[in-house]
């Protein structure tokens, strides 16, 4: 084929098709297409992961000794379960008693956590990962994802065999947090740009007269119905306070506990342990 009139007509058709897709998606009509892509590519990524994950762990971020990789994974899974357990235990401590009473969260024993592996990460500037668990394992959108170190993000879309997680480091992600000790409420946003970004999160606190200080730790605050975040998951530690006293909001930079560049085994909180009183709480719309 040459660069003829036919070629130019073809180019025009393809460009029009792309613009049409853009328009359909920006109007919110591309959900079936996206779920189809999720199903097809999710399965392909799961299959490819069997081949690529040894390469990634060999050349990748952390040189893990091949022999101990299996044990490390098992221990990480255990750690995630314990972390989830600990967060619920901490929540029951005196410091959180009042909040817990307010949100009727007391009496819960822990969370059910589904262990998952990261099989793909966002291309370019997207700060998202794909997990190898999906709707068939009981994953639903807006569920909390954590790993052995702390909060990872929240599930945004689910296909039968895979799910997509928006990382807390993404610039569009907003996490409600609570400062350990002072109890101030605030929110954390990512600074984006994926691997090219600074890797720090930005904290804003509606200042109640108590000043932030470097070294203070942040945990997730309670969300209605435990979505998108279950309370008490460690998020990060304040490294630098940007705004001085007198500002309406205080701003600080936060180093996250989770290493977003080297995610492997994570856990998805799929719900409270059976027999808790959370179901009636969850059914309250918009609470």
């Amino acid at each position: 084929m040459r660069d003829t009139r036919r070629t130019r007509i073809g180019l025009a058709i393809l460009l029009a098709l792309s613009l049409g897709l853009l328009a359909v998606d920006s109007l919110g009509g591309a959900a079936p297409l996206r779920s189809l892509g999720g199903a097809v590519f999710g399965s392909a990524e799961r299959a490819a992961n069997a081949v690529t994950s040894p390469i990634v762990s060999f050349f990748g971020q952390r040189a893990t000794a091949a022999a101990s990789a299996g044990r490390v994974r098992a221990l990480e899974r255990e750690l995630i379960k314990l972390r989830a357990q600990l967060s619920s235990d901490q929540r029951r401590q005196a410091e959180y008693a009042e909040l817990a009473r307010l949100l009727r969260l007391s009496g819960r024993q822990g969370y059910r956590v589904v262990a998952a592996t990261v099989i793909a990460v966002g291309q370019g500037y997207d700060d998202a990962v794909t997990l190898d668990v999906g709707g068939s394992q009981g994953i639903r959108p807006q569920e909390t994802v954590l790993n052995g170190a702390g909060l990872v993000g929240t599930v945004t879309s689910v296909s039968p065999w895979s799910s997509t997680v928006l990382l807390a480091s993404d610039a569009t992600a907003v996490t409600a947090v609570r400062v350990v000790g002072s109890g101030q409420l605030g929110w954390v946003t990512g600074q984006g740009a994926g691997r090219y970004g600074p890797g720090l999160l930005r904290l804003r606190v509606l200042s109640g007269g108590i000043l932030l200080a470097p070294g203070q730790q942040l945990v997730t605050s309670a969300s209605p119905g435990d979505r998108p975040f279950v309370p008490g998951i460690p998020v990060g530690v304040i490294t630098q306070v940007l705004s001085g006293p007198g500002a309406i909001t205080q701003t600080a930079l936060v180093r996250p506990f989770a290493d977003f560049g080297a995610l492997d085994v994570v856990g998805v909180v799929v719900g409270p342990a059976a027999g808790s009183g959370a179901t009636q709480h969850r059914s309250r719309p918009g609470a």
């Binding site: 084929m1 040459r2 660069d3 036919r6 070629t7 073809g10 180019l11 393809l14 098709l17 792309s18 613009l19 049409g20 897709l21 853009l22 328009a23 359909v24 998606d25 920006s26 591309a30 297409l33 996206r34 189809l36 892509g37 999720g38 097809v40 590519f41 999710g42 990524e45 793909a120 990460v121 966002g122 291309q123 997207d126 998202a128 990962v129 794909t130 945004t156 879309s157 296909s159 895979s162 997509t164 928006l166």
Partner: peptide, 30 residues
């Protein structure tokens, strides 16, 4: 040539838009 380049480009871009962790608008990469 241009015809095959644009065809391959469209198909690759569409795949990039649809592959799961992607969260941008479908059609942008295409």
């Amino acid at each position: 040539d241009p015809a095959e380049g644009m065809l391959a480009g469209f198909l690759t871009g569409l795949d990039l838009d649809l592959a799961p962790p992607a969260s941008h608008l479908i059609g942008a990469s295409a």
